[in-house]
């Protein structure tokens, strides 16, 4: 296999792997707490579900970037030149790494937000906004990853 293709594959893997791991971990942090709240008060399922789902978006962003990259080099078919391969690799980095950390940390904030749902359900919208703040940085990373991807020509 040509080294360029190898790097390109690695780029896809980084984008999907790390953001996915982060999201899974983040959702699990919030989910565990949500399950606890629901055992006490099953009516709060809806509100806790929203907070639990929030750290899941990083995984989606990573997946979208990964998928776009796959489409791009699948369209060409042939081996990928080394420089383009390294570009793919670098493209995967922002959303992969920022996605990993922001998802885990967002999971923690979402878990704290679930505490709001448990104790003061009328204020739960504020918990959602707090968790949303963390996501900003994953979004910025996604935008950069996307424009890096957009600048690669094969």
């Amino acid at each position: 296999m040509v080294l360029g293709t190898l790097y390109a594959f690695l780029g896809v893997a980084i984008a999907v792997l790390f953001s996915g791991i982060g999201s899974a971990y983040g959702v699990s942090i919030a989910g565990k707490l949500a399950a606890g709240v629901v055992t006490e008060d099953p009516k709060k399922f809806g509100q806790t579900l929203i907070l639990t789902a929030l750290p899941g978006t990083q995984g989606i962003y990573g997946f979208v970037i990964g998928m776009l990259m796959v489409f791009k080099f699948a369209a060409v078919g042939g081996p990928i030149p080394l420089e383009a391969g390294i570009r793919f690799l670098i493209t995967g980095l922002p959303i992969g790494i920022v996605g990993l950390f922001s998802a885990v940390l967002q999971g923690k904030v979402a878990a704290a937000g679930i505490g709001i749902v448990a104790k003061r359900p009328e204020e739960s919208a504020k918990g959602i906004v707090y968790a949303g703040l963390v996501e900003t940085y994953a979004i910025l990373a996604f935008i950069i990853s996307f424009f890096l991807y957009n600048s690669i020509t094969l």
């Binding site: 929203i50 789902a53 929030l54 989606i60 703040l133 996501e135």
Partner: peptide, 17 residues
Amino acid sequence: GLNILGAYVHSSRLQYL
């Protein structure tokens, strides 16, 4: 599901902050 949630969170954040 994920998009209506994300759109709500981020649109309201833009208003609030």
